[in-house]
Design a protein around this nucleic acid. Structure first.
Lengths: 189, 189
DNA sequence: GCTAAACCGTGAAGCGGTAGTCGGGTCAAC
DNA sequence: GTTGACCCGACTACCGCTTCACGGTTTAGC
């Protein structure tokens, strides 16, 4: 059995937080001491562990309550909804980033890579010693191992859909040894 | 002169919001009608326009107050600070995305690289002909040109916060020519 | 046995940035 | 003079806690 501050410290929480969880009925200690102190059992501890995991994913208290209530039946719907929300929240923040960057007249921070664009990326690889042929091998390898990630990556550099598909097609073709498809200029236009 | 609800609607705000702005002294109407109604002048309107622009960038009321107080002298510091905060907030959300995706056993749809991990990435660069030294030069270059994007990139490969910060620190140090920091094993452990 | 520190309890208030609601006053049109 | 749209100030609610206040309990050392 753990006392409140002891348990709180185990999870990096404050005593107040556990008091709050008790008040809202999310986690109530299963016992009390003679002096009416809260006593948490190992089962309570396990429940708190789950709660913390969900909280770290940004789920609301209400969401967590319902997740704990339905005991692993169909948790996925709530989680999926939260995942969607997160995506929207991130996009909102990215919009704000762009607005602010505009005010500062900084190169607009756009996609997932924000201040990264095709030119910067290529310059970096070149600085590391890659030449055109190496970059082509790299695209081929990327397309072979993770075509979807390859696509997302190209988009994140600000390359448009059409051009991204073209690059991928050439990478796929080159991987099969078709010599006539050698057009390194597409990779570094 | 505009009345409160009229002005609120022009900016897609609620009446309550303008009442609040008045209460906290962010935007007070320059006049009152005979019936003590708030009357906003065109100058008030212009001020509100600025306020809305800043709010859309997610600045706090306090930030906006100080920005308006110093009348365009050195706004950039506050804005830059907010931009940094936004980057951190986005990273926090992306961490949550990954945690949730893990719970759903989905290949993280959130990160820019999704089904990409550190091992695959390194294998790809090696296949393209990069050696350890080249990879280190690349990290150094990445850190120098786009530190935030570098961080996001490392996180997207599934590298944890602590290790990402370590790699960046070493990259930054190596960029300044500190030979004793040469520890390529950190980049490919 | 005494004291001090560290713990425990309860209850209330506060944070930000609104949204909404209340009872009552004001205005223009019919 | 009445209807209905608008306005007023003041209030409450939201989330996930945190902080404060005040008093009782446990623990350690002397």
């Amino acid at each position: 059995m753990y006392r409140i501050t002891e348990l709180a410290r185990q999870f990096g929480l404050s005593r107040s937080t556990l008091l709050y969880y008790d008040r809202v009925g999310l986690l109530s200690p299963s016992g009390r001491s003679g002096a009416d102190y809260r006593l948490y059992s190992p089962a309570d501890r396990a429940r708190l562990e789950t709660i913390c995991a969900y909280r770290k994913a940004g789920l609301t208290i209400e969401d967590i309550r319902s997740l704990l209530a339905m005991e692993g039946d169909d948790t996925s719907e709530v989680l999926r909804r939260r995942l969607k929300e997160l995506g929207e929240d991130i996009r909102d923040l990215q919009v704000k980033q762009r607005l602010l960057a505009g005010m500062l007249r900084i190169t607009a921070a756009g996609g997932p890579h924000a201040d990264m664009d095709k030119e910067t990326w290529i310059a970096m690889l070149r600085a590391a010693g890659m030449d055109d042929a190496a970059m082509e091998r790299w695209h081929v390898e990327f397309e072979r191992r993770a075509p979807e990630a390859h696509h997302r990556f190209l988009i994140s550099l600000g390359i448009n859909e059409t051009e991204a598909l073209l690059i991928r097609k050439l990478s796929a073709g080159a991987g099969k040894g078709k010599e006539e498809n050698r057009r390194t200029d597409v990779f570094q236009p």
